[in-house]
Each structure stands twice: as C-alpha cells, then as structure tokens.
C-alpha cells in the first residue's frame, strides 16, 4: 500500500532557471521525511516534483529520475492524473475552493472526480477527515457555509482534511503548520503520527523542533551560494541529523548559527 520514493540526479528548472540541482534521496515507505532549509532554497520545488505538480507551471521541467515503487514517475507513459490521485498534497498557502461549502471542500477529491457515494459514506469521510485535521469541533455546525469564510489557519486545516479525505498513499505537506497555533500544530503532528502507520509522508517545515518531533529522516536543503541553484546538502536519519550531522552547514543551520 504505502510507497517509497527514490530520487536520483534530479535537476529542476523553471524555464531556463535551474532552481534545484543534483538531488539524490530515498523517501522510505511508512516513514515521515522532513525537508528543512532556508527560504528560497527549493524545498517546495522538490516537493512538487514528487507528484508531478511541478510541470503545471508553464515552462517548468525536470531532469533525472523519480521512482515510486519501481515505476518511474517521469516516464512518458505515466499519467500525471493517476500519480496525483495516489500522491496527495497540502500547499504552502491554503487554497479552499471558493464556490464550495466546507462539506464540499472536504469531499472535493471525490466530487470533482464525479465519484458516486452514499450520503452516509460521504458524511463519514467528512467527519473523519475534519477530525483528523482538528477542525471538526469548530465547523461541525456550519458545514454548509462557504469554505472561504474560515480563518487562515482554519482554511489550512480544511485543505489538510481535503487532502486526507481521498486517502492518498503518499502525502506531501508544504509547511502545513506555518499558520497554526500550538494546539492545532500538535493536533496535526498527532495526525501525522497516526497516518504514518499507513501512508508515506513528506513534510516541509521551518520549525526545527517539529522536524525533530515528527520525522524519521530529514533532508537539509541549501543554496550553493547566492544566485546558484539549491541542493540537498545532507539527507540522514533525523536522530543523527540533530545530534551528529555530517555536514558543518547542517549543524550551523540547525543550531541557529546561520545567515
């Protein structure tokens, strides 16, 4: 069920601009992998290549290989839609659908694909997903209200609920807690722990403690130099990364002695 992801020699471009170069790593199945690194070093960019969302941007392209359970993602015969159904994503900025109610937003993955289901089944999915995202108590009385009427942090949790409602096998989360208070953050971390037993999770975070708390492996991204492409500096088990990193820059970044 859960999938591992092998990335080898990945170069990522926006048009002619090489944003990230030479990424090699293995994201293990049923584990949480965290990406850390300074702003603009390409964490979101790498994350988006893992479910073929990168190519949605005009001119964006990828060189190298991403292999998910033996299948090469960028093989010409691979259908990006099928990839995205299995590898879900929570974006850095919340993006609920403005025309839909809270209820419909959670079910968007099913409804937009015209998947038929019973009312009771749909209700179950909505409740389970919203509870998972720690939003249920706040919205259970106004499920039919528009999703845009929620606060920023609530919208972010709504988007998390929407992503887990379709039960993807891999979940990519781009700074899912950046707009959340400590209580919701810890609820999301609980959710990550829970999902880990079934799913593979990759999370981008600027919060070192969070990376240390939730992840099994950590990748540290950094720019080679200003104006140079981003790169994966170090990829190691989180324990090792936070106690005895291989790379000096990693240690400097983690301990806060950095730029």
């Amino acid at each position: 069920m859960a999938k591992s992801i092998d990335v080898s020699d990945l170069n990522i471009y926006y048009g002619d601009f090489l944003a990230v170069s030479g990424v090699n790593m293995t994201v293990k199945a049923r584990q949480v992998t965290a990406f850390i690194g300074p702003s603009g070093c390409g964490k979101s960019t790498v994350l988006r290549t893992l479910n073929r969302m990168h190519e949605v941007i005009p001119g964006a392209r990828v060189e190298g290989k991403v292999v998910v359970d033996g299948q090469s993602l960028y093989d010409p015969s691979v259908d990006p839609v099928a990839v995205r159904r299995q590898i879900g994503m929570v974006f850095q900025r919340p993006n609920p659908f403005p025309t839909m109610s809270i209820y419909d937003n959670v079910l968007a993955g099913n409804k937009l694909n015209a998947r038929k289901m019973k009312k009771s089944e749909a209700d179950d999915i909505v409740e389970r997903s919203l509870k998972g995202a720690n939003l249920w108590n706040e919205v259970k009385d106004r499920l039919s209200k528009p999703g845009m009427g929620l606060s920023g942090g609530q919208q972010q949790r709504l988007c998390i609920a929407r992503a887990i409602a379709v039960r993807p096998q891999v979940l990519l989360m781009d700074e899912p807690c950046s707009a959340l208070d400590p209580i919701s953050t810890s609820a999301i971390e609980d959710l990550i722990h829970e999902l880990k037993s079934e799913y593979t999770i990759v999370i981008v975070t600027h919060n070192m403690q969070q990376a240390a708390r939730v992840s099994d492996d950590t990748g540290f991204f950094n720019l080679k130099a200003t104006g140079e492409p981003g790169q994966l500096v170090e990829f190691n088990p989180t324990k090792k990364m936070f106690t005895n990193p291989d790379n000096e820059a990693t240690e400097a970044y983690i301990s806060g002695r950095f730029g």
Partner: peptide
Amino acid sequence: ELREGALALGVPKWRT
C-alpha cells in the same frame, strides 16, 4: 492556486 489545488487531488484538467 485553485487550479493546482484541484489538480493535486488527481482531478483531470478538463474537470478542473
């Protein structure tokens, strides 16, 4: 972002 939100849920482009 809305288009991306839908695409990331595995919704084909025409449905998006």
